[in-house]
């Protein structure tokens, strides 16, 4: 669990509910001990800025190249994107997607909805979108798992998973369970 800034506690609570052990990662040496990394919701410019300051961006890219899986929600998705529309902000650039920031509008346009995600079962996911991004381009090998009004909001590329919304805010466990399965080589 990347613990720089944002809704870290909510993600840890979901992992606890799934009885999946987790550690909070603030430093490079802690990164060596994990098989999967979650990047929480928060402010992508802030987290990206701090990652670069501590050289953690390079460390995460190195660990990912050696097989570490990564799951990002909202700000996490933006940081994982190779391209961010109209922005040069620091990022990890792990995934072959383009992210559009604040793409549904400002805070007063933030919303929640029932999202259909066939991969995660028949029952819809309650999804909270807060100043949310969406994915405006997917590269080869990137699988679209969910869309909202024709905009891509959940994607997977091999062992990378990224959501434009916050499953962790509503106690939804299925997206995290998929990630845990990816980490354990079961999905």
């Amino acid at each position: 669990m990347l613990d720089f800034q944002g809704d870290v506690r909510e993600h840890v609570a979901v992992l606890d509910a799934l009885k999946t052990p987790s550690v909070r990662v603030k430093r490079e040496e802690q990164l060596e001990t994990v098989a999967g990394l979650i990047i929480p919701g928060g402010e992508s410019t802030t987290i990206g800025n701090l990652l670069r300051h501590y050289g953690m961006d390079e460390a995460i890219r190195r660990r990912h190249a050696k097989g570490m899986a990564v799951f990002g929600t909202c700000a996490g998705l933006i940081l994982m994107a190779r391209e961010i529309q109209g922005s040069q902000q620091p990022r990890l650039g792990l995934m072959d997607i383009t992210a559009a920031r604040n793409a549904f509008g400002r805070q007063i346009q933030s919303f929640e909805t029932d999202l259909s995600v066939p991969t995660l079962g028949e029952a819809p996911l309650r999804a909270v979108f807060i100043r949310a991004p969406y994915v405006s381009r997917v590269g080869e090998g990137v699988e679209t798992l969910a869309t909202f009004r024709n905009r891509i909001v959940l994607v997977r590329q091999s062992n990378l998973l990224a959501a434009a919304f916050h499953p962790e805010l509503v106690g939804e466990t299925r997206a995290h369970r998929l990630f845990v399965d990816i980490v354990r080589g079961r999905a």
Binding site: D7, V8, R9, G42, E43, V128, H166
Partner: peptide, 8 residues
């Protein structure tokens, strides 16, 4: 939720 995102 927005307030939670500003934590830390």
């Amino acid at each position: 939720g927005l307030a939670e995102m500003l934590r830390g």
